[in-house]
Design a protein around this nucleic acid. Structure first.
Length: 108
DNA sequence: CGGATCGTGCGTCACCAAGG
DNA sequence: CCTTGGTGACGCACGATCCG
């Protein structure tokens, strides 16, 4: 959603570095694979790399979603706990007050 | 009405810890 | 080692609300 598709790499954040595999499929890679029985062509390697990247991004996207869901749930739990403890505290204060009253009257 | 500001969710990156 | 999953931080988009 949003972020108008486009594989613009979101290089927005300056100084990203790392990843970016700068698609070796361009330039260098074009050097018509000289050795016939050489393993995967640069083109294939590039495709493989980009496939891996897509997969990683997808997994991380889902992980981030799950992470946020859990965090939200955790916060909700904490809020509930706060509510319970506040109620309990109130009750205890009332109880203490009542006991104090009793103690006072006895001592007269 | 239209711009400014705020709150929220999302995707991505970087980093870390655990496991193979 | 390398891989993988979880998470903090960042920037972006978008809807809601405020205010002149």
């Amino acid at each position: 959603m949003a972020v108008t598709g486009d594989e613009t790499e979101s290089a927005t954040t300056g100084g990203m570095s790392g990843y970016q595999m700068s698609s070796p499929a361009s330039g260098l890679s074009q050097v018509m694979d000289s050795s016939p029985d050489s393993l995967p062509s640069p083109q294939l390697l590039a495709e493989e790399a980009s496939r891996k990247r897509e997969l990683r991004l997808m997994k991380n996207r889902e992980a981030a979603r799950e992470c946020r869901r859990k965090k939200k749930e955790y916060v909700k739990c904490l809020e509930n706990r706060v509510a319970v403890l506040e109620k309990q505290n109130k009750t205890l204060i009332e109880e203490l007050k009542a006991l104090k009253d009793i103690y006072c009257c006895k001592n007269e």
